[in-house]
């Protein structure tokens, strides 16, 4: 559905992503894993043009391709419509209600008539279980609710792919569950997702594909089953050992 090829990105002299290529297939729930600083977040941000990559191409299965480095404003806007982005700290518009947060992009950017946009917005909020909170401002919602509004905002326009940048990392532990449940429900509905997360249970149970990155390159791309049972790469094994205390102690 979408292909990223030969993407490179540096911050100053530090090359964070090195000639990375990845295909995203329709209905994929891909979890990006890797030690911190390995370029996962930067990859997501480059895909949605929040960072300018130095090189690389973004191409879509239905035709059309753009160069990350040289894409014009209009092309960027066109690409962004194909993505929804969920931020680590949700970044809800603090001067807008939950419903307005969801409808803002629909009305202003996609020029959907307001009544229609409101209907779409309500449906999106219902999907994340917040139908009864549409008139609340972000600061009147809990962290988990805020992030669910953030997800509703990302899915409302039915983009091709939802990019999620550590959607639960900034939440209190007891609030991560509600957000993960929403993500799981979306996965079951066939929504294509590319998520950076440290939630190993989500990666194991919900992901269809695990992409393990280190040092700005993909070093393993496999199913969760294969990855968690026996990663091919030593670096991946080290990573799992750090994250899953009991990892590797039993063999079946």
């Amino acid at each position: 559905m979408l292909r990223i090829s030969h993407l490179s990105k540096s911050f100053g002299s530090n090359q964070v992503i090195k000639d990375l290529s990845i295909d995203i297939r329709q209905g994929d729930v891909t979890v990006l894993l890797g030690p911190s600083g390995c370029g996962k977040t930067t990859l997501l941000r480059c895909i949605d043009f929040l960072e300018r990559a130095e090189s690389g191409t973004l191409s879509f299965a239905d035709g059309g391709a753009v160069e990350f480095a040289t894409a014009a404003k209009k092309e960027i806007a066109r690409c962004r419509r194909r993505f929804g982005f969920v931020f680590q700290n949700h970044n809800l518009f603090s001067n807008k209600t939950a419903l307005e947060n969801v409808t803002e992009g629909l009305i202003v950017a996609r020029r959907i008539p307001k009544p229609e946009a409101v209907a779409i917005g309500r449906e999106a909020l219902a999907r994340v279980g917040l139908a009864n909170r549409e008139d609340y401002y972000p600061n009147q919602l809990s962290g988990g609710q805020q992030q669910r509004v953030g997800i509703a905002r990302a899915i409302a326009a039915k983009p091709d792919v939802i990019l999620l940048d550590e959607p639960t990392s900034a939440l209190d532990p007891e609030l991560t569950g509600e957000v993960l449940d929403v993500m799981k429900a979306l996965a079951e509905d066939g929504v294509t997702m590319l998520a950076v997360t440290h939630e190993m249970t989500f990666a194991q149970d919900v992901a269809k594909r695990i992409v393990f990155m280190d040092g700005g390159v993909i070093i393993e791309d496999s199913t969760p089953r294969a990855f968690f049972a026996k990663p091919r790469e030593e670096r991946a094994r080290q990573f799992l050992k750090r994250l899953l205390p009991n990892y590797g102690e039993y063999t079946i």
Binding site: D48, L50, A77, R80, F87, L92, G105, V108, A109, R110
Partner: peptide, 8 residues
């Protein structure tokens, strides 16, 4: 950034 990702 959020506004940009929403297409504004």
């Amino acid at each position: 950034e959020a506004a940009l990702t929403c297409g504004l």
